[in-house]
Structure formats: C-alpha cells, structure tokens
Computed example of a mutant assay.
Amino acid sequence: MKLAGKVAFITGAARGQGRSHAVTLAAEGADIIAVDLCAPLDTVGYPLATEEDLAETVRQVEALDRRIVARVADVRDTAGLRAAVDEGVAELGRLDIVAANAGILSSGSTQELTEAAWREMIDVNLSGVWRTCKVAIPHVIAGGRGGSLILTSSVAGLKSYPNVGHYVAAKHGVVGLARTLATELGPYGIRVNTVNPTQVDTDMIQNDVMYHLFVPDEDNPTKEQFAAASRATGLLPVDWIESRDVSEVVLFLASDAARYLTGIALPIDAGATLR
C-alpha cells in the first residue's frame, strides 16, 4: 500500500488512462477525486467519455474498498474545477497527488487548422492542465507534507510530428509548465513531473482520425495498417502501449520511491524519442 492515507485528484478519469490511473492508485491505498467532462467537443472527431463511463470508474475504485468523489467538470472552467476539488477535499480530508490527465486529439496541417480547433486544443491540453494545478496546489500545500503533481504530456511534448501542430505545441507547453511549477513548489516539498507516452491503446488513438493520420495514403485505413505504422515509430516491437504502462509510472512518481525526482519529463515511448 504505497499510497496509504493519501488522496489523488485525477482529471479525464472516466475512461482510458484516467480510469487506469484511478484504479492503480486506489489499489495502492489512495482515495480518489475524479473528474471528467463527459460530453462531446465540436473539434474532436471521436466519441468522448460519458457519465456512464465515469460511473464505471467509481464502481472499480469502490470495488477496491477505497473512497471516491466523482464529479462532471470541465478543465476549461476554473470555477467548476475548483468546486469539484473543494468538495472532494472536504469529504476525503486532504490532497496529496494530482494527475492532470485530461486531453483531446484532433488533426490538420498547421496552416489549415481552424481557429476553433487551435483554441480548443490549447484550452484543454495546456490551459486545462494549468487550471487543474491552480485549483489543486493550495490544498496540497495546506496538507503540509509535500506532494506530487504528475502532468500528462506526450512524446509530442519532446519532438515534432506533422499535422498535429496544435497538439505538439500544447504538449511542449505542459513540459515547460511542469518545470516552472517544480521550481516554484520545491520549497514546499512538492514534486512536479510529466509523463510522456507514445501511442496508448485508448479511444483517443483507436479511431479513424488517428488511422488517417498514420496511414495518410489509404482512403480507409484499417486498425492493422495503423498498428504497423504505429509500431514503426518506436524501437521496441510493440504496436502501442497500454494504459496500465502509463499508470505504473504515475504510481512511481506519486510514491516515495520517486521522492527526489522533480522537473523531469519521463518518456514511456518504446524508444520513439530516439527515432
């Protein structure tokens, strides 16, 4: 029980990596504050999580005999996000860990991106991470025993990719934000790091938008064609990694095993940053 007595706040917790983080941290003793938008976004071409998905996260955490406070909240809305965190801390007693995981993906050449697509990407994937930290940090400081903020970036936060310039810009921004927060929060014993995954087997990549991005010369690319293209981006012979692979690193960064790690960008990429 590496996280016994601790409370973790997780955004984008209804499914995918967010749910995996919630369940993994709960299995190690943490209670959970979970939020998700649970609604579609106009610029995102694949279905986003639902309230039923968030309810399933609650069910899985409670099955581990841990407490969870789950709320529908939008990382673009500071007031709503703050209310969710405040309610969670009021019920669970404290806040020690933040996993700023919520994110979206869309695509288009940089010069052809619409204003709406650019704005929504930055607002969710970068400004949403900042808002998450903004509303959570006062509670972590108030706890008086340090803490760990883990911000979800991407391999695209460490290198460039074509046709996702807004995503690359946002994820690079998350790395810069984490390094600045690490500098500011070090005196409080609060560590701040990013996880930088390659393709993770979630709804964010298993859709036609991603298939066309990786296999642009096919009119109707298949999952198998995408798998081959995805595998070629790394050094290890895997098509993509699993949410659990990221969650294990989030657990490490949240735990005392990483007590002297701060300000780092940690690739979970099967070697993709070396390509």
Rank of each mutant, 00 (worst) to 15 (best):
K2W: 04
G5K: 00
V7Y: 00
V7M: 00
A8N: 06
F9E: 02
A13C: 01
V23H: 02
A27V: 08
A27T: 10
I33R: 02
A34D: 01
L37H: 07
L37G: 05
P40A: 09
D42H: 13
V44Y: 05
G45Q: 00
G45W: 02
Y46T: 09
Y46M: 08
E51M: 00
E62M: 03
A63S: 14
R67G: 00
I68P: 10
V72N: 00
D74W: 04
D77N: 15
D77V: 15
T78Q: 06
T78S: 07
A79E: 11
V85K: 10
D86W: 05
D86G: 05
G93K: 05
R94A: 07
L95V: 12
V98H: 08
A102V: 10
G103Y: 01
S106D: 14
S109K: 07
E115G: 07
E120N: 07
M121V: 15
D123G: 03
V124W: 13
W130I: 14
K134E: 13
V135N: 10
A136Q: 09
I137T: 14
H139M: 12
I141Q: 14
A142H: 04
G144V: 11
R145E: 12
G146N: 01
L149F: 03
I150D: 09
S154L: 00
V155I: 01
A169Q: 04
A169Y: 06
K171P: 03
H172F: 15
G173W: 14
G173C: 11
A178R: 07
A178I: 13
R179D: 05
L185M: 07
R191M: 11
R191Y: 13
V195Y: 10
N196S: 09
T198A: 07
Q199V: 15
Q199L: 15
D201V: 13
T202F: 09
T202N: 06
T202Y: 12
M204H: 13
Q206H: 07
M210I: 14
D219A: 08
N220W: 09
T222K: 06
A228G: 09
R231D: 02
D239K: 02
W240I: 02
W240E: 04
E242T: 11
V246D: 01
L251H: 02
F252E: 05
L253I: 15
A257D: 15
R259D: 15
I264R: 09
P267S: 08
R275L: 14
